[in-house]
Amino acid sequence: MTTYGYFLSSEEFTPAELLSQARAAEQAGFEALAISDHFHPWNDEQGQSSFVWSMIGALSQVCSLPITTLVTCPTVRIHPAVNAHAAATAAVLTEGRFRFGLGTGEALNEHIFGDAWPEASQRMEMLEEAMQVMRRLFTGEQTTHRGTHYTVQNARLYTLPAKPPPLYVSGFGPQAAALAGRIGDGFVTMSPDAELVAQFRRAGGGQKPVVGGLKVCWGTDRTQAVKTAYRLWPNEQLPGELAQVLPTPAHFEQAAGLVTEAMVADAVVCGDDRESHLRAVRQFTDAGFDEVYVNQIGPEQGGFFDFYRTDILPRLKDSATSRLSAGAANGDDREGRRPPQGTTGR
Rank of each mutant, 00 (worst) to 15 (best):
F7N: 08
S9I: 14
F13V: 04
E17W: 05
L18R: 01
L19I: 12
S20W: 03
R23K: 13
A34H: 07
S36H: 07
N43G: 14
Q61A: 11
L65A: 09
T68V: 14
V71R: 05
T75M: 01
N83W: 00
N83M: 12
H85F: 07
A88Q: 04
T89A: 08
A91D: 01
V92F: 00
E95A: 08
G96L: 10
E110S: 00
H111Q: 15
W117M: 09
E119S: 10
Q122I: 14
E128H: 08
Q132R: 04
T139N: 11
G147M: 09
T151C: 11
T159E: 15
L160R: 07
L167Y: 13
A176N: 11
A178N: 05
R182L: 03
D185A: 00
D185P: 00
G186V: 12
P192K: 03
A194F: 06
A203W: 00
G206H: 04
Q207W: 12
K208L: 05
P209R: 00
V211G: 01
V211H: 04
C217W: 06
W218G: 08
T223V: 10
R231F: 05
L232V: 12
G240L: 02
F252L: 10
E253R: 04
Q254M: 10
V259G: 08
D266H: 12
E275G: 12
R279D: 15
T285F: 03
F289V: 08
F289A: 04
Y293W: 14
P299K: 00
P299L: 05
P299W: 02
E300F: 02
F307C: 07
I312T: 10
A320P: 09
A320T: 03
R323Y: 15
S325P: 01
G327C: 05
A329T: 08
D332I: 05
D333L: 05
G336H: 07
R337E: 00
R338W: 05
P339W: 11
